[in-house]
Design a protein around this nucleic acid. Sequence first.
RNA 1: GUGGACGUAGCUCAGUCGGUUAGAGCACCUGGUUGUGGCCCAGGAGGCCGUGGGUUCGAGUCCCAUUGUCCACCCCA
Length: 427
Amino acid sequence: MKLKALNGFKDILPGEVELWQHVETRARGVFTRFDFSEIRLPVLESTELFARSIGETTDIVEKEMYTFVDKKVTMRPEATASLLRAYIEHGLYVQRPVQRLFTIGPMFRHERPQKGRLRQFHQMDVEVLGSLSPLVDAELMAMGSMLLQELGLQVSLEINSLGCPQCRPGFRTELLNFLAERMEHLCDDCKRRSATNPLRVLDCKNPGCRHQVLTAPSILDHLCSACADHFAAVQKGMERLQVPYTLNRFMVRGLDYYTRTTFEFITTDLGAQAAVGAGGRYDGLIEQLGGPKDTPGIGFAMGMERLVLLLQQKQGAWQEENTAPQLFIIALGGEAMQSCHQLAHAMRRGGLRVAMDLEGRSLKSQMKQADRSGATWVLIVGDDELNNGQGVLRNMQTQEQRRVALAAEALAAVVTPPIQPGNAADR
RNA sequence: GUGGACGUAGCUCAGUCGGUUAGAGCACCUGGUUGUGGCCCAGGAGGCCGUGGGUUCGAGUCCCAUUGUCCACCCCA
């Protein structure tokens, strides 16, 4: 095999696509219920946009971006930056003081692929721009929980606050002092992290580090009064909406722009990839990207691959929509083929799903195809049927056959049964 | 970028101590039935055994390199 998809890039084949559509349909339903509007964004943006928003020294920007160096453009590694760019560029803050937007699409990061992680992956991204209200934080998390619940997934929610530019530096210094005292007990990665991003030591997976960090100062004890009040109001809001969550003072974020509330939807069923969704507040980012002053924002992203993996592991988690042909037409002989081709077209124009073999294969072979297609009805047309204008219509389940006029309307009347008033509610 | 495991038919996998023509199941095609699906039966097609080198009388099997995939680390949705 010579040509194949790139490492970390995957085809989504028929059979699996239906599950993706199911997830997207459910997501769109929930998001619009919460008054969010869809926005569609380019996958290619100026490199500068990501460098400025995500952070020059983050792993994503330093070594994971697909960048056309000569053209100074990059395949987006996440959606928030692009969405904010569009928000600022089109002055959406003028049209509506608080914008609620979502987008669904592919992202690109040059990482080593593993379970639940690809180089092209797909996210559903939700953002609320222009609101400082803690009720928005609570509502976003509640919405994420609702979607996961409607998908039938058991996922836990962990929340934390990272403070703001007022209170975080103080905490950072204190944490650095704490880490310096027990540097020799930390793993090599954490020794490095202490210098680059000390907060990350808090969520190291190494058991030794976890043990050390248990007695570390807590960010939650160092919030300024504004951040503390906000976080308390977020938690009150969560309780009012009855969204279960756990407080995790060790949770931090990988992207530089996060402030205050952060959260992750966590599962234990995806190997090393615990997070199916994550997000938080980024109150300084919009201004930093050239938007209006003091415009706060908050949002989260869910990993579609991870949701799909979870649903695939869960038998019967969803009901596939029936897209099988309603009628399979079998034509025997050249003349019948031409006549049936025309008939199929007329019925399709009328809105029916009609399948037909155009290869002139044997009746037996076509019956097999019809069976596999899942069609309930099969129309058989040979020379005799063509001459007297009556096709043989067979019900594949009951094996009953009858003669029906070779006319689109007559066939449609049999193939699409009128809806019984009593059955409507069952569907 | 680092580590480990694994590459045999479209898919899932056997293949003994190195031995002559490389196998099974599923899927596909044809027939068993002048024009009737599923089940069954018979037959067929489909392989550079990832690639390149080496050892050997002989390599799918052993060795080396390379490449790909997966899992984990890092990081992240």
